[in-house]
Amino acid sequence: MRRRLPEKRHDVTPVKPPSRGALVLGLIPFGAMCFSVALWDRVDPMILGIPFNLAWLILWIPLSTLCLWAAYRLERK
């Protein structure tokens, strides 16, 4: 059975904020795939026949998983 939601507001804070190390690890993919676009948005040199910008993003998919995995290890401690 579903409980009726209470009428009054609930202070959910403090939700435990993520650790600083995890946050930094999370910002790395943002730097690489978003803010630095002007640096990697070009066709040459092609990597394995793929334009550099597309190859760069493909490379950063597993690297992002790596960053998050490290953040996961950090958060679990």
Partner: peptide, 10 residues
């Protein structure tokens, strides 16, 4: 799409 999952982690 990749970065969305980074956000979701937090």
């Amino acid at each position: 799409l990749t970065l969305a999952y980074v956000v979701s982690f937090f």
